[in-house]
Design a protein around this nucleic acid. Sequence first.
DNA 1: GCCAACGTTGGC
DNA 2: GCCAACGTTGGC
Length: 135
Amino acid sequence: MTQYWLMKSEPDEYGWDHLVAEKEGTWDGVKNAQASNNMKSMKLGDQVFFYHSRQGLEIVGIMEVSKEHFPDPFDDSGRWVAVKVKPVRKLNKPVTLKDMKQNPKLAELPIIRQSRLSVAAVTKAQWDEILSMAK
DNA sequence: GCCAACGTTGGC
DNA sequence: GCCAACGTTGGC
């Protein structure tokens, strides 16, 4: 069963365009227990929203897990993991945080409830609702 | 650029 | 093992 996720990055550091240029990106540098556990739960083919934080504040595209968790290559402690992702498609229209906050169906969305969590699970219902807003 | 929210660290 | 101090994240 496909699972749905949302991951955020500052476009200055690593944005949607970087991922598209690379064709496949390594999602590393996540040093938070909750986020890390989420990454460990990711399966090949899971669908992931790419959210731009700080600048943009919007979901810009969809990516897909192309490699399940492995030790973060830039982490010496061995505690943290990375995954690989591939871009699937850009949304027709970005879905902004403002839009999502105004939608009562998305009140439980992790980025609204706990804005600092960088890797979070999204339910199928939330996923579909966000997609319907991207038109 | 500011600051609230949250996580982590370190002295006791 | 508690909790105050500190650092980081991310919306505003």
